[in-house]
């Protein structure tokens, strides 16, 4: 049988080499675009951004902002994961509750993130706005994936569980949890990326103390475009590092989820 082609990035040395070539090509294009524009305020060159980052990153102001954003992102991720998994599990087990919650989830999913942030600005203190907005954006993603995971449970095993009168907690632990583990992993991955983006966007508008978004906005007001790029780079690195940590943890978690 012919093997199907995968769109997954190639791993190993050829993959790393291709990645390095791609990154270099991107930097080259950026440099060429910056030269074509000819204005550091509109589009600073990569070396100018690197200098701005080198100056910014060791400062106390930056490290405090990084810590603040990190804590908000992790808090938002934790809340959306816990609440989304619980609601997704309930929706997966009960079609009636799933139908009852469907309109609310549809409204949340369809609401533009900026509208959520603007409303949150009215309701909450500035530090809580990014967390609220991120939870509201990531929560439906987790609910949908977990619900799908619960529904993917083997109907033959569920019938067996019904016949042998398995307790609900045994059904959840032995049948539902292993079925939804890959969906939960996918939901967590998506929610984590979404949380960073929305937290930083919320910070840009709500301007809390100690926040990457606040630093970004301050640099923009002062037309320090290279510094805006440096703050953005910090956000990207934060996202990439937590993504890598998540993938590392993911290799361990499914075993821990399985009953001993």
């Amino acid at each position: 049988m012919r093997k199907s082609r995968s769109a997954e990035p190639h791993r190993g040395v050829p993959g790393a080499a291709a990645g390095a070539v791609g990154a270099l090509a991107f930097l080259l294009l950026w440099e060429l675009a910056a030269r074509a524009v000819g204005s550091e305020i509109v589009l600073p060159s990569p070396p100018r951004v690197a200098r701005a980052a080198a100056e910014l990153f060791p400062t106390v102001r930056f490290l405090a902002a990084l810590e603040g954003t990190f804590l908000r992102g992790i808090l938002a991720f934790g809340i959306s994961l816990a609440a989304g998994a619980a609601v997704g599990l309930v929706c997966g087990l009960s079609p009636v509750l799933a139908s009852a919650l469907s309109p609310a989830l549809t409204v949340i999913r369809a609401t533009p993130v900026l509208a959520v942030i603007l409303l949150a600005l009215i309701w909450f203190p500035s530090g809580a706005v990014p967390v609220f907005a991120a939870v509201l954006m990531a929560f439906p993603v987790v609910v949908a994936d977990v619900r799908q995971g619960v529904r993917s449970a083997d109907p033959g095993l569920l019938e067996m569980a019904r016949l042998f009168r398995l307790r609900k907690r045994d059904r959840i632990r032995s049948i539902y949890v292993p079925a939804l583990a890959p969906y939960l992993a996918s939901a967590s991955h998506g929610a984590l990326g979404l949380c960073w983006k929305v937290v930083v966007a919320g910070e840009v508008l709500s301007q809390p103390a100690r926040a990457l978004g606040t630093g970004m906005q301050g640099a923009r007001i002062q037309l320090e475009t290279a510094e805006v790029f440096a703050w953005t780079l910090a956000g990207i690195l934060l996202c990439a590092l937590t993504d890598a940590a998540f993938k590392l943890a993911q290799r361990k978690v499914p075993r821990a989820l399985l009953p001993s």
């Binding site: 033959g156 095993l157 019938e159 067996m160 016949l163 042998f164 032995s174 049948i175 292993p178 399985l258 009953p259």
Partner: peptide
Amino acid sequence: SYVFQEPRLVPSL
């Protein structure tokens, strides 16, 4: 008790 056409064992156990 039921013995099904296929064993219906939980794969992770």
